[in-house]
């Protein structure tokens, strides 16, 4: 294995710890003045790429370059800086203020892949905001590359990788030639926390910016969001006066008797 180039796709999403609120019109989730961070599954993907790079450097078997890419508004650059602080080498920002659906992102990533010619593309299995779980699979389809999704373990071989996948009720091990698509599951690794000096150093790492329109890709949304609603509120418990009262409530209100 000589020189690998690993492309990692990341997404800026509303932070996992934030309570999600629907906007007044019921058309979207409130994102103004809300803390954002990198999608946790993309963090795992970035960590995996960096681990591969470090393992190659340690064994002196070759080198790897980790390129992170993010599609979205200019604030996505924060996410890219986080990835750079974790240890990625350089970043690409595909700028677009429009709503990007999984198909559009997959097409944009395809254009980036054709430019960068990576040996592996790592994506989080899904983003925690829209939970689509489609981008990696669509990208594999568009590129006609093999895909290993929901990875919980990755071993790199010579021009191939062996991936343990999390499937219903167990695990499955697949081997694929490179180049290939990898999407990460929760148990793949423990993402590192960027140290303060590394965050400072990340500010000097190269970050290329493309406008989505310049990549010559049709990013028009194909799906229309009709309505977004919060889950029903949990109703509080009630105190009952007596056994008769309880039986009556179970019969007439809960209708379980």
């Amino acid at each position: 294995m000589s020189n690998l180039r690993i492309l990692v796709a990341t997404k800026r999403v509303v932070d996992y710890a934030v309570k999600i609120r629907v906007n007044a019109a019921g058309s979207a989730v409130e994102t103004a003045n809300v803390k954002h961070s990198m999608n946790p599954f993309d963090e795992i993907g970035t960590e995996q790429a960096i681990q591969i790079k470090e393992a190659l450097a340690k064994s002196k078997a070759g080198t790897a370059e980790v390129v992170v890419v993010s599609c979205g508004p200019s604030k996505s650059q924060e996410t890219l800086r986080t990835a750079l602080a974790m240890g990625a080498d350089r970043a690409i920002h595909v700028d677009s203020d429009e709503e990007l659906q999984p198909l559009a992102v997959a097409k944009l990533l395809k254009a980036v892949v054709e430019k960068e010619k990576p040996d592996m593309v790592i994506l989080g299995k899904q983003a925690i905001d829209d939970d689509s779980n489609q981008t990696g699979q669509m990208l594999a389809g568009l590129l006609n590359w093999p895909q290993a999704t929901f990875a919980s373990k990755v071993e790199l071989g010579d021009k191939s990788m062996t991936v343990t996948r999390e499937v219903d009720g167990g695990v499955e091990t697949v081997k694929t030639p490179l180049p290939a698509i990898l999407t990460t599951d929760l148990r793949l690794n423990v993402p590192r926390y960027a140290s303060l000096p590394n965050i400072m150093k990340a500010k000097k790492k190269p970050l290329a910016k493309f406008a989505a329109a310049d990549l010559g890709v049709d990013i028009k949304p194909r799906l229309q969001t009709l309505k977004i609603a919060e889950p029903p509120k949990r109703q509080g418990g009630k105190l009952v006066e007596s056994v008769d009262d309880l039986v009556d409530k179970l019969k007439n209100e809960a209708k379980v008797l």
Binding site: A17, L186, V190
Partner: peptide, 18 residues
């Protein structure tokens, strides 16, 4: 502290998706 943050995030993800 780093470990605690990771555990919190991991648990939140696990609770949500698994």
């Amino acid at each position: 502290i780093e470990a605690m943050y990771h555990i919190n995030k991991y648990r939140a993800m696990k609770k949500r998706y698994y």
